[in-house]
Write a protein that binds this DNA or RNA. Structure first.
Length: 570
RNA sequence: CGGGGAGUAGUUCAAUUGGCUAGAAUGUACGCUUUGGGAGCGUGAGGUUGCAGGUUCGAGUCCUGUCUCCCCGACCA
């Protein structure tokens, strides 16, 4: 490709809202351009990268016997009603209606569609496992897109679905796919961590997120110091140690408390005791049923809403309670009790297991000027549900006692063990087993965010001058720069010859053939675009015996012959 | 959806208490000069100041409404 003919040039000024490296450089170098918020054009250079990444994914998918296909973009809403996902927390689901009144969703994900296509066939156990996938545009009605390609409202995803006989067969397939994913990311220069995570409204048994550690990441996860435990923040387990095992359990009492003691900080300050000695209540509301949930937890811990939702089987349904909600059972912010409210059917309690680690809590029944102390869980109050509903934090201990280290990362892919979630709900999602009986599929779904992965590769591989593409997904292999005054200059002709012979060999070259552009600008552009190999042809290089060669990632250059160039890039 | 900020040339930004023909840089077109790290000079094109009302002799500037975008949070394969 001659740079002079390329659509999508580099620009000097980049929109000031581009804060992260990948966003800034991809725009500046002419790989992408924003259409409206969260929707991007892929320009020719960006598309080249995408094409190469797609090819890598295809290769690795083929290697594990996955078959590529394509589903319609608009999915009938009836399918989503079948699995009850049309309103189960699928906040980002968009809908469109055609002239006949039929409702569709531009697919945010494809479980229903893929299950639907499979049930259109007579499937025998001999046909299993089935692994089918697509590269499909995903539409998510994100309230807020951000970070360039990191979080967009529509994006290309590789999504896979497997249909297996049973859990045993599933596990074998699952492992093959996890291994393939690790390989895929490795091939684009990314070391991925496979992190157990929350399966949200996808349902099913367990899932993993594929995370690249990065400061720009949105996802938080924990790794134990001994390296034996790793988990996403949403589900991370930790050890709750006894806070005051030496203390004697004493009698419950209600006592006067100055009314300036309101918050947890006030408590710590006033009583000169650690936050862990106090009771904390956090109130949530089920946004469908209106049920209010009071989560009771040790004062030093935070409630993990994801865990709570799973405990209550209200995935995606909880939101913060409002002042009106608190008033509905005669309470107010800062004065929610840890027990009682028996007259209110719409109120329920859930306790964290940490409640058992403290003797003689303070709190739990705060009125304007009184509170209670020496409160003991199990003696003075006890909830119907006691479960792990707490958020892990940096420095907490894993269950086997190793310190947890919090890390930030970018989620580039995920794998879900869906179990029978979809085959239970979708009528006819059955195969015939070896006894001739109908059986449900044991399913899984697997995704890779294509554009996000590309952006992540840049987050990991860049310097102050621009991007540094891994060779596997670089838009071109070689950046050829000719420094010439006219097309009849020797340097221009030599560049032309080299361009032809490299191209003939199938090596992709981006030749900066511009005559009127000064060398400095060409170098700056080449750095920005980040093609891994650079060859310069100029009168100076020719005097020195050939072509000046340099890697994008290195600062030293050397002059080599055409034969050596061909050898290096072969 | 809550809090904050911003909409002026392709882009980045100016425009004083409401006051002259809305400016500059950069980019772009043309000409000259120049050719190893975003050079220099000159000439030109490029604007319904997001949109709709209102106040005023006069509105980019003040008021009302509305739309869009950005940041923080909430939400979130």
């Amino acid at each position: 490709m001659k740079y002079s003919r390329l659509f999508g040039r580099t620009i000097k000024d980049v929109p000031s809202d581009a804060t992260i490296a990948s966003h800034k450089f991809l725009i500046q170098a002419g790989f992408i351009r924003e259409s409206v918020a969260g929707r991007y054009f892929f320009l020719p250079l960006g598309q080249k990268v995408m094409d190469k990444f797609v090819k890598i994914v295809e290769e690795e998918m083929a290697a594990i016997d996955a078959q590529k296909m394509l589903i319609p973009i608009l999915q009938p809403i009836e399918l989503w009603q079948e699995t009850n996902r049309d309103n189960s927390g699928g906040y980002e689901l968009m809908t469109v209606q055609d002239r006949r009144g039929a409702m569709f969703t531009p697919g945010g994900t494809g479980e229903e569609m893929f299950t639907d296509v499979v049930r259109k066939f007579q499937i025998s156990y001999k046909d299993l496992p089935i692994h089918i996938y697509q590269f499909g545009y995903k539409f998510r009605d994100e309230l807020r897109s951000k970070g360039g390609l990191m979080r967009t409202r529509e994006f290309l995803m590789k999504d896979s679905y497997i249909f297996t006989e049973n859990n045993e067969q599933f596990e074998i397939e699952y492992k093959r796919i996890v291994d393939a994913y690790v390989k895929i990311f490795k091939r684009v220069g990314l070391d991925v961590e496979v992190v157990p995570a929350d399966n949200g409204y996808f349902g099913g048994e367990y899932c993993h997120e594929f995370i690249i550690e990065s400061e720009t990441g949105e996802g938080k996860y924990f790794v134990s110091e001994d390296g034996k435990y790793i988990a996403h923040e949403d589900i991370a387990l930790f050890k709750r140690e006894d806070v005051n095992p030496e203390d004697k359990v004493v009698e419950f009492e209600i006592f006067e408390q100055p009314d300036h003691v309101r918050t947890m900080d006030d408590n710590v300050e006033f009583y000169k005791l650690p936050a862990s000695r106090f009771l904390k209540n956090v109130v949530y509301k089920n946004r469908i049923t209106g049920k209010l949930i009071i989560a009771t937890i040790r004062g030093d811990l935070q409630v993990n809403k994801n865990k709570l939702e799973h405990v209550l089987d209200m995935v995606g349904l909880l939101e913060d309670a409002t002042d009106e909600d608190l008033a509905s059972f005669g309470s107010k912010s800062g004065y929610v009790h840890s027990w009682g409210y028996k007259d209110y059917d719409h109120v329920m309690f859930v306790g964290d297991t940490s409640l058992r680690t403290v003797k003689n809590f303070i709190g739990g029944q705060k009125e304007e000027t009184t509170d209670s102390r020496n409160v003991n869980y199990g003696r003075d109050f006890e909830h119907e549900i006691t479960a792990d509903i707490a958020l892990a934090e940096d420095g907490f201990l894993s269950e086997d006692g190793s310190k947890l280290i919090g890390k930030k990362g970018i989620e580039v892919g995920n794998t879900f063990n869906l179990g029978y979630f979809y085959s239970d709900k979708m009528k006819g999602a059955r195969f015939t087993d070896n006894n001739g009986k109908d059986e449900k599929y044991y399913m899984g779904s697997f995704g890779i965010g294509m554009a996000r992965t590309i952006a992540t590769a840049i987050e990991v591989h860049n310097d102050e001058n621009g991007m540094i593409w891994p060779e596997s997904i670089a838009p071109y292999t070689v950046s050829l720069i000719s420094i010439a005054k006219s097309e009849s200059d020797e340097s221009y002709i030599k560049a032309q010859e080299l361009y032809s012979s490299l191209t003939e060999k199938g090596i992709e070259v981006l030749w900066d053939d511009r005559i009127e552009t000064r060398p400095g600008e060409k170098f700056a552009d080449a750095d920005l675009i980040g093609i891994p190999h650079r060859v310069i042809v100029s009168s100076r290089s020719l005097e020195n015996g050939g072509f000046e060669y340099k890697k994008r990632s290195e600062s030293d250059s050397k002059v080599i012959s055409e034969a050596e160039v061909m050898e290096l890039l072969r």
